[in-house]
Write a protein that binds this DNA or RNA. Structure first.
Lengths: 162, 162
DNA sequence: TCAATCCATACCGAAATGGTCCTATTTGAT
DNA sequence: ATCAAATAGGACCATTTCGGTATGGATTGA
């Protein structure tokens, strides 16, 4: 399945928790508890997000993490780029210069169109939107990630039928 | 990088070669030669494509493969679905029912929007378009795939700057 | 009967992934 | 000066996935 890695999914989750209360600094342990992920995994993600300048970190007692910019100014594309690298569905979609006949390749333009659409779709959604409470729901953002292993057999079959 | 697997990329390549001359039946060995891929790999892909009903196969002497439908009627999404499974950037984007709080999850709707955009982008491009010759080029479709390992260090740096 | 070609299955080394662990450093409080 | 809280950095590991190959069986036309 064409999909984000689990760690990127987790990273988006963590970022969405931070986006729900952007002024609040949260520790890695706190974020781990809120996302039901392992603390070492969350710590690892936060480090990369900090290196990618999507969060800012404060060391020492009372340290922690918070968003580096307003949730409206950070998109899902930003998170994906930091955690998975350049958004490019194939090498042809990203790179130029690596192939001697690319200037005459008819598929390349199409891959670039597809890639552009994907990038735009990811850029169209901000963390503010990800964290926004839905109408008729409990207060605050309740978000989750589902791992494939938790799907039962019937659900797999249902998915396959689409 | 959020990307298709190499095998899916190869599969799209193979399908595009078949699309260039949809009435012609080609053997796995022929397709391997035209795509500069290993014969066992191409054979493996063709089997899956046949199972996914994107190509039809004829056994025996003078056997081979050809598209199961007109190139205009097969999209990149079809190929991706057969080779990579359901198009779903996260489990949340594909599946419902696997999580007890999803009805109140604000992120899920956004993942579905993103997923829908990706699917539409892939569905918008047919094999006919992938195989179409470009203006000002040599005859016939010349297509290629670039593997990351072939990028030199300078190119990697250039990509990173985008 | 033979050659051409697809079908089916298994196997394997390499790479990637997800996760954990440990130590060093920084910071604020005492 | 010491301690606890918390980040920073790096290494390691088991598992899974991936890309690729090999082999034998079945089908088909000559």
């Amino acid at each position: 399945m064409l999909k984000l890695s689990k760690l990127t999914d987790y990273g988006t989750l963590v970022m969405t928790v931070l986006a729900a209360q952007p002024e609040t600094m949260r520790t890695a342990a706190d974020l781990a508890a809120r996302t039901h992920l392992g603390a070492p995994t969350v710590a690892k993600l936060l480090k990369r997000l900090a290196q990618g300048q999507l969060v800012e970190s404060i060391r020492g007692a009372h340290g922690g993490y918070r968003l580096a910019r307003a949730p409206e100014a950070i998109t899902v594309a930003d998170v994906v780029r930091v955690l998975e690298g350049q958004i490019g569905i194939t090498e042809c979609a990203v790179h130029s210069g690596g192939c001697g006949i690319e200037s005459s390749c008819s598929a390349r333009a199409n891959w670039r169109l597809i890639n552009s659409a994907i990038r735009h779709a990811l850029e169209a959604v901000t963390l503010a939107q990800m964290a926004a409470p839905m109408r008729g729901t409990k207060s605050g953002a309740q978000i989750h990630a589902v791992t494939l292993s938790r799907l039962n057999a019937a659900d797999r079959t249902a998915v396959g039928k689409v």
